[in-house]
């Protein structure tokens, strides 16, 4: 009886169960992003290109970095979005250098509203984002060239917002009585 049970029942069952372990489709022999690669000593699938390699799109990036895009509402909006996602942890929402991480002991960055940075050209701000400055790491691999210009434009808007005169804001002077604000600041 057992002599016949093995080939007729057990063997097909075992074969069927074996199919449960066949992951050849689910785990294919290929390197996906972040997949472990035993072939290389560091175990990572991603390889560092040889020194001197020029990345695809590097020329376009260089051009985008060299030529500031025209400043319009869309660029400022983009700059605000990037600034609030990437820069606020240190620089704070208004650029006073009072971000969340500063409150926790990170060295305080300079305020954008000091004279030196008000006078600095936008390209200087882009260079600092690209290469870092002091304890600030470089953000070249985290912020696209065009976005760096967008952030610089938004920093300009922040600087304007923190130092504007009432007379410079259209329609504001009529709403505020002059004697309530003799210095003319909003």
């Amino acid at each position: 009886m057992t002599g016949r049970l093995l080939p007729s029942v057990l063997l097909p069952s075992l074969l069927l169960l074996g199919a449960c372990d066949d992951l050849s489709m689910a785990r294919q022999k290929r390197y996906d992003v972040y997949r472990r690669a035993e072939l290389w000593s560091d175990g990572a699938e991603a390889r560092n290109p040889p020194d001197g390699t020029v990345q695809q799109g590097a020329l376009a990036d260089e051009a985008a970095l060299a030529d500031p895009p025209p400043v319009d509402a869309a660029l400022l909006q983009r700059g605000r979005e990037r600034y609030e996602a990437i820069c606020t942890p240190c620089h704070g929402l208004t650029g006073h250098g009072d971000g969340m991480i500063v409150a926790r002991g990170f060295p305080r960055p300079p305020s954008y509203h000091e004279d030196r940075l008000r006078a600095a050209p936008a390209r200087y701000l882009v260079d600092v984002i690209t290469n870092g400055y002091g304890v600030m790491y470089r953000y070249a691999n985290r912020v696209e060239p065009r976005d760096r210009w967008a952030i610089a434009a938004y920093i300009r808007a922040l600087q304007l917002s923190q130092g504007a005169r009432i007379a410079e804001v259209p329609g504001l002077a009529e709403k505020i009585p002059a004697e309530a604000n003799p210095e003319g600041r909003p």
């Binding site: 972040y34 942890p89 969340m100 926790r104 790491y137 985290r142």
Partner: peptide, 26 residues
């Protein structure tokens, strides 16, 4: 707690298939 934006670390989430695991530098 700290309110860090997703994109501060997962930088490629808007432009690639992978959201991106931050490098140690981040």
């Amino acid at each position: 707690g700290l309110g860090i934006d997703c994109r501060y670390c997962h930088t490629s989430v808007e432009k690639a298939a992978f959201a991106g695991i931050p490098p140690t530098e981040t």
